[in-house]
Amino acid sequence: MIRLADAPFDPAAELGRFCAGRTESGAVASFIGIARGEQGQATALELEAYPGFTEAEIARCAEAAAARFSLQDVLIVHRWGRIAPGEPIVLVATASAHRREAFEACDYLMDYLKSRAPFWKKEHGPAGPRWVEPTARDLDDLARWG
């Protein structure tokens, strides 16, 4: 399931629901991304999304990941709007029969989200706002998957 959230969400509750009743999933892996304060240099993040398009593009990638890593299920919750330091930005959870596929799919999905998911990220700080684009490291991370 793919969900965009315009207000803070509770990753533990989301993960609890995702795990509930899984008698055939041997493994659930998860990742939570949290907004960094950068020692006061980042007072807030502002994420812009393209409603309709953003969810559809993420869903397309989640389907590709499910096929590639033999996943049983995927959950992605992604914030948009204004996000304060310490608030979760993203939760990715993957369920599979065995742990390796769940770990790798989680890693893959995060590399995709960092550089390809339709969000535009503005960091607010004492020096004013600036748009954040994928770093060379982000692009190298994505290239690992071919």
């Binding site: 994420l47 993203v90 989200l113 550089s115 390809r116 339709p118 535009w120 994928p134």
Partner: peptide, 8 residues
């Protein structure tokens, strides 16, 4: 029109 994207 969509400039380079960045989520997570």
């Amino acid at each position: 029109f969509l400039p380079p994207m960045s989520g997570g």
